[in-house]
Design a binder for these strands. Structure first.
Lengths: 126, 126
DNA sequence: CTACTGTATATACTATCTATATACAGTATA
DNA sequence: TATACTGTATATAGATAGTATATACAGTAG
């Protein structure tokens, strides 16, 4: 399991791990029942501490994306695809809402913001 | 000058002050040449420390939005309306780009993201 | 000259994040 | 049963970011 985390990213490491694992699950790259590396293994892989990896796992467990058993390990929880997609859409909606609100607060009209967004989509990658 | 900052907002206070003053300038509520409260005044108004308000002013000065003279005070810099609007659009583009990228990383297609965005715009306030 | 302004520096505290270590309880396997 | 792993818990401690308070200096305006 290869997570894209970086010490240069200003975001806390545990948050990066959460984001990455959540993405792998929501995109289907990790399936229900898949085992995750132990918190010790992951800490070693990412050259970070066990507290950090455990915190990430705990948060994802709280979200219902992971299940954990002492002595056994941590696994992707049973999450059907439609629920996963709905979760992804919800997260995206939150991100877009926040961006939209900030843009509005800068005095831009919805029309202007919409035009900017479309411009980004066109100009965006293929 | 009334800034909307809150200790409950997880964002650092200096960042909130920066955002608010930047907004006032970009929306035209503050005009070129307008004086800002002294760092001591603002610190008192917002019940925060001088270091915090000074940090906000310094950053905005670095951005070119404020000019400062020792012994005199701090003022809104000469910024014409079109440049201000362009700056606002640029900031908005940055916010939207980041939200879009995160949404893509969740496995959502541009079509889906666009639909979500439109839904937010419709459902958004009036 | 006085009262303000920004600039600089020092000390110190709080909160968050993270590293390292130790120990316990549970599980799986040989 | 012993071993090697797993997660859980706790302790100490360091680094960083943000912030509070205080003091002092230099500059400005009336």
């Amino acid at each position: 399991m290869l997570l894209k985390v970086s010490g240069e990213n200003p975001e806390p490491m545990y948050q990066q791990i959460i984001n990455e694992i959540r993405r792998l699950i929501l995109t289907g790259e990790l399936s229900p029942g898949d085992p995750l590396p132990s918190i010790r293994e992951l800490a070693q892989q990412l050259t970070t501490s066990v507290i950090t990896t455990r915190r990430a796992y705990l948060e994802l467990e709280r979200e219902g994306l992971l299940t954990t058993r002492q002595g056994v390990g941590t696994f992707v929880a049973r999450v059907d695809r439609e629920t996963a997609r709905a979760a992804a859409r919800k997260i995206a909606a939150g991100l877009l809402t926040r961006a939209l609100e900030e843009a509005r607060r800068l005095g831009l009209t919805d029309g202007e913001i919409s035009a900017i967004f479309d411009g980004i989509l066109q100009g965006g990658n293929g």
